[in-house]
Design a protein around this nucleic acid. Structure first.
Length: 305
DNA sequence: TATCCAAGGTAAGTT
DNA sequence: AACTTACCTTGGATA
């Protein structure tokens, strides 16, 4: 295993690894201590987190293990690849300048409290297919269970990798996932999401469509593109745009944000997803509105008011 | 111990 | 285009 660290001085605006990984943006990382995912908020936050890089994203075309831990002053890492810092920077957006982003965001009381509480939390940049499947699975589901679904999908269908006697699994490719039957996926407790995941995997595997195709389109066109996948409506599309495809202005209108709008920004409620989305995006500052959304989401979900 | 409820929504059918 | 309804599963709350 290669190892190293990223010093705090290279992380403009600080870093909160636990909030970044456990805030419900990504379901493709795990806590190495096997503590219940989504149970760490009162815990301490210096656990190792690990993910497996898909073979399609590595220099070797093999899956690679990546582990990382915040030790209070710096981001330590261990990996089967020496390219770990580059992968960490991409996946956890280490080169985002949070000070600039916070400064560019409007001065709203709720937002200020959320920024203060979780200062250092970054957006993630998940692999698009994994992000797409994760958020299809997120419908009417709790964070810890969404995570469990992705872990089971990886274990059943993803590439295996053995390191120090332990076996890890990459999230499956569309080609690996498409052959699964609806019954297979229901056995993994996906419930009614099973046929959505299967049909979406088939669409990607056959080349009919790919989430990467949305990249670069004007924001609302990109969202519209993603809704062609089965199980993907406006909200899930916004999540993929924000957490995988670099659309930092995307504001997923989930139940928590809907509540926040009703309570704090009622004038932004416009009756339709499209118009409400435009209004709240404007209220949260436009270009980085998705960053603001993620802070508000996590702040409210963890008991902030 | 049994029952109920809600969880980061979406698709399909009606009006 | 706006409005209803069904949908799997399960941990945690309530009786």
């Amino acid at each position: 295993m290669h190892e190293g660290h990223v010093p705090e001085t290279e992380l403009a605006g600080g870093f909160d690894l636990q909030a970044t990984v456990e805030s419900g943006q990504t379901y493709l990382w795990s806590r190495a201590d096997d503590a219940m995912y989504d149970d760490g908020l009162a815990w301490g936050g210096d656990a190792w987190y690990e993910t497996v890089l898909p073979a399609t994203e590595t220099e070797t075309n093999e899956p690679e293990l990546l582990r990382t831990r915040w030790d209070g002053e710096r981001l330590a890492w261990e990996s089967t690849t020496p390219q770990a810092p580059e992968h960490l920077t991409r996946l956890l957006r280490l080169d985002d300048d949070l000070d600039t982003i916070v400064a560019a965001t409007p001065d709203l009381p709720l937002l200020d409290r959320a920024f203060e509480r979780y200062r250092g939390m970054r957006l993630v940049r998940d692999p698009p297919f994994g992000s797409l499947v994760s958020f299809i699975c997120s419908a009417q589901m709790r964070v810890s269970r969404i995570h469990g679904m992705q872990m089971r999908l990886a274990r059943e269908y993803g590439d295996a990798l053995t390191v120090d006697g332990r076996t890890y699994h990459a999230f499956p490719t569309a080609e690996q996932l498409a052959p699964a039957t609806e019954a297979d996926l229901r056995d993994l407790s996906l419930g009614y999401r099973a046929p959505y995941v299967k049909r979406t995997a088939e669409m990607v595997a056959t080349g009919e469509a790919h989430p990467d195709e949305a990249r670069g389109l004007p924001y609302e066109e990109a969202r519209e593109y993603l809704t062609r996948f089965v199980g993907v409506g406006d909200k899930v599309a916004d999540c993929v745009l924000l957490f995988a495809l670099d659309y930092l202005e995307a504001v997923p209108l989930d139940t928590w944000i809907q509540t926040a709008i009703a309570e704090y920004y009622p004038d932004c409620e416009r009756g339709s997803y499209r118009e409400t989305s435009r209004a709240i995006r404007e209220r949260l500052g436009g270009a980085f509105a998705g960053y603001a959304q993620t802070y508000i989401f996590f702040y409210l979900r963890t008991g902030g008011e």
